[in-house]
Design a protein around this nucleic acid. Sequence first.
DNA 1: TTGATATATCGTAATATTACGATTAATATA
DNA 2: TATATTAATCGTAATATTACGATATATCAA
Lengths: 108, 108
Amino acid sequence: MGLTKKEFFTDEQNKLAATLKALSHPARIAILQHIISQDACICNDLVHELGLAQATISQHLKELKNIGIIKGNIEGTSVCYCIDEKVWKQIKIELNHFFTDIKIEKSC
Amino acid sequence: MGLTKKEFFTDEQNKLAATLKALSHPARIAILQHIISQDACICNDLVHELGLAQATISQHLKELKNIGIIKGNIEGTSVCYCIDEKVWKQIKIELNHFFTDIKIEKSC
DNA sequence: TTGATATATCGTAATATTACGATTAATATA
DNA sequence: TATATTAATCGTAATATTACGATATATCAA
């Protein structure tokens, strides 16, 4: 127990859930918002901006990188992170597809 | 440790993260899709449809009820669940707001 | 009333997440 | 070369999540 039974669900359901999970932490929301507001940002800026420890920020960045929504580029001794526009737009499409306008005929 | 430091973030960031968290499990995605496809559904249908134990489904339903996206109505000995259209639309708006079209000037 | 059915809740084991200090690795600068 | 800076990774403690059996509760049907 304690382990999600992915085999019970479709690939689409598992993938959407994984995407949402990566976005479901306030620090990761804040990181994305910060990157967007600056177009790009240095990892270290986030450490000072958010107040969490460097190791924690790095871990959150890793999770965002895992779903591809951000990418990092080494610039000398620091790393510049930015949104991967293609992935961002794809996620937007998938969410819009899920949150399609529902027409409720009967309710409860 | 192990506890999200909500005080570091804004109410909006925490709320959006909580909403996404409630949606970030394939069983809960599947439950919502099933309810939508049927307009409404009996809890017991989900137990048979998804293959998870009754206690597990009940727990997932509770999490969805917690963010208000579904509501349940007692019908004799069973409970009919349906989407709360108002909350559904509100979440859709919030997600669209977050996933606003970004205009990337510089990248990395 | 008795038994069947449906659902919520409790208790709990297995696993995952969150956070951070310490360490490592890589580059920049003195 | 030695030192500082930046960020990733490791190890680990605290907490949360997931899943399920067992039990409690409520309604229906005989």
